[in-house]
Each structure stands twice: as structure tokens, then as C-alpha cells.
Amino acid sequence: MDLDKQNANPTILNPSDLPSRRRTSAVHRRDHGGSGLFDDLIPQYNYLNDPFEQPVSSSDSDDDAVEAIDEQEVYDLISSISDPEHPLSLGSLAVVNLPDIHIIPPASPYSSISTVLVEITPTITHCSLATVIGLGVRVRLEQALPPRFRVDVRIKKGTHSTDEAVNKQLGDKERVAAALENGTLMGVLRKMLSTCE
């Protein structure tokens, strides 16, 4: 049953080494390098939540600051997809990597359409499941990104023996739609996406 796995023994990245958002933002938050251990010594709600003052909704002020969708966010959306062969995430298998995700802003000021380009790296060059993985990434992004994003999923150049053909398949809207009609395939995809946070 396990023998038919195409790559039975893949290399695994440690979760500590995967890119995460906290890495960049946490450092700047506290200029003194502390971890905020002492912040909770005096419970906050006593002072903030005095209901007799007009309710200070603390989120009001930072509501103005827009957090745009960036590469890390796209990475977070797809890195938790499971590999169809192993109970491991695409992130820890390095199938999706942060540097291979690009958000291309609208081509002209009149257009609002941005493009998300994701290049995936199969664990081995002849992996026949590359198409399924690509499809999974594509479905996930189409479900999770707002419609102003066009999704483009490709196999990274030179990482797969038939990358051209697979890319053609993934780029062809009708073939993608046809594939999604296939019950077995949808079952596999659903299982892959079930681990998404």
C-alpha cells in the first residue's frame, strides 16, 4: 500500500525554519527587545473597559491602517495544504516556498486586477501528482482570495520533467473546470485542503 508512493522518503523542513509573519513584525514592536513578559502584570481590562467612560473601542484607531494582502499571506493560505502522499504540509516539504510567490499589481491604473503567481516545486522531478498539487493550490487560492486577484499556478522551471505540459494543464480554465467535476479527484483535493487553517 505504501510501496506505490512515488517518493517514500522526502526531506522535511523543521517548522521553526518556515517563513512566518511574526518573524519580521515582532522585532520592531518592542524597541527594547523584551518579550512583553511584564505587560500583563496589571490586568488591562480594569482600565480600558471602564464602561462609564464612553466605550473606548481600541480597534477604532488602527482600523484605518490597511493591511494589504502580501506574499506571506498567500504563503500562509497554501503552505498548510497537505501533500496527497504524506501527512505533511506543502510548506514543510518545501513544495511551496515564500520566494516563489509573487503578487503582480494591476497593469494599468484603470484596472483593479492583480495577479498572484505561485511556482511550486515537486519533491521529485517525475512526480505525477504535481498536477494534483497545483490544482489544490489553485482551488485553495480561488476560494480564499477576493475576486480581484487572478491566480496563476505553475511548476517551477526545471524542477519537473514535464513542467511545460503540466503548466498548460493548470493554466487551461476549461480543463481545470472539467477536472473539478471529477468526483475522485475532488475527494483527493478535499482531503488535501482539510488541513488548511
Binding site: 490597511v66 476560494q143 482570495l145
Partner: peptide, 21 residues
Amino acid sequence: LTAALDDGKREVRYAAVRCRA
């Protein structure tokens, strides 16, 4: 919910993605 997917706040988008899924 597609509107919520484009929310200005990451926390909200995150919740929207899960909800829509």
C-alpha cells in the same frame, strides 16, 4: 463573504477564509 475576503484587516480576512471554506 467574497467582500470580507478583501477586508482591510488581516485578522478579519483570516476569519473570512475559514468561514467561507
